[in-house]
Design a protein around this nucleic acid. Structure first.
Lengths: 221, 221
DNA sequence: CGACGGCTTGACGCTAATCAATATACGTGG
DNA sequence: CCACGTATATTGATTAGCGTCAAGCCGTCG
């Protein structure tokens, strides 16, 4: 969270956190169309966010874990434009947005922190656009796994082992692939000795090889 | 720009605009890696923004026209993470970011306006992710053209005619397609009487048919 | 224990990428 | 201002990669 704050400032920011909210697996934190009044800081658990087109198609736009903020989409129209759904039993801090506005006027560091959070989300989405626009299936899956373990490692988990909290379908939606393609790609990596895959459990057996998949756009010749 | 402001508030916001800057066609407004110190409000002209991966691949992340803000990517790391390049001779207002911070603490409406601008960009990118993740080539091109004319119409231009300021290559990069596919899709639409295309000039001959392309995920059977 | 959701694997088809040749517009310098 | 050279665009032939459809397996949860 924000750094460089005095004790007094910290005390004020604590006022922000009015409520915590538990969200059970598969339950929505919010849904597109609902009125927006708060951002949510994830304390524990994992969420997916997804947008839905008029014709019903939907797209997972991100997977979010402890320490990350969701709900930023709601600011512009005063109502949410995507769904946030818990992938496991989770807990969030509710941060009423009008309070954030007031407080960030008094505490400059909070203001700047919020700006950075929003900017980070924009930059993250640029990365996803690069992935969706120019990578092949193997590269997408490799990038996805490397990104996940990196974030897990930053939270004190293993840099080489992880348990997927999402289905192949959801991974596929996020990566612009069908679930069969995700499954096949996992299998191929496993066969090549890059990964060990057992359902939701994944061990990265050869990080270098996995990284090298990203370096070679034209596939592995 | 922001509404609901007193004259005094307006006067303060005018202080924001210290400089204008002209950018010639093909010249960068900023480049990835450069230090960030300002946002840019486009006065005239068109820009593309694009990110580049380590391996050199790049991806156009957006096309931006008068009234839109670019540079939001730079906030999080204090340096830009993408390039903004003028597609025609253009002019921007330079909005020094530290001033924005100070002023938005005094003028609540400005603060909220900035939040909305950033949130709008996040939501826009969700839409692009949906496009890249789940649409077929025809749908992507149709969505691209409809989005462009809609924005042009909001600026007082024709709802059915436009001049593309970007190459097929750039359109393709934005849409996750190769330039040949973009060209072929234009040709097919022209052959079906949906579009008239002459190089950079496009006339939408049948908006309804173009819209209906989007409604049918499974292609046009 | 049975049923259902999630996952894997195979066979096949289709879309868009690739490679290539040509045409057209644009910009630049003589 | 014209001519040349280069960027941009169109179009065709072929292919690779992913999607689709289908069948069967596994694991979980009621």
């Amino acid at each position: 969270m924000p750094s460089g704050l005095s004790a007094a400032e910290m005390a004020r920011i604590d006022q922000l956190i009015t409520t915590r909210r538990k969200v059970r697996r598969k339950a929505p934190l919010f849904r597109a169309g609902e009125p927006f009044h708060a951002l949510y800081a994830i304390r524990t658990g994992v969420f997916k966010t997804c947008v839905t087109a008029e014709d019903g198609r939907d797209q997972v736009t991100g997977f979010h874990m402890a320490g990350e903020i969701v709900g930023l989409d709601g600011i512009v129209q005063d109502h949410h434009t995507c769904d946030a759904v818990a992938l496991e039993d989770s807990e969030v801090c509710v941060l009423p947005f009008d309070r954030i506005g007031e407080l960030s006027r008094e505490v400059g560091a909070l203001q700047h922190h919020l700006h950075r959070v929003m900017s980070r989300e924009i930059v993250r989405e640029h990365g996803v656009m690069l992935l969706l626009g120019s990578m092949r299936a193997e590269e997408r899956v490799a990038a996805f796994l490397l990104n996940l373990v990196q974030r897990l490692q930053a939270r004190g988990f293993s840099p080489s082992e992880l348990v997927l909290r999402m289905t192949r379908q959801e991974i596929g939606s996020y990566l612009g692939l069908k679930l069969e393609t995700v499954s096949r790609t996992f299998s191929r990596f496993a066969q090549e000795g890059v990964l060990e895959v057992q359902h939701r459990f994944v061990r990265i057996a050869d990080v270098e090889r996995l990284r090298s998949v990203l370096a070679q756009p034209g596939s592995g010749f």
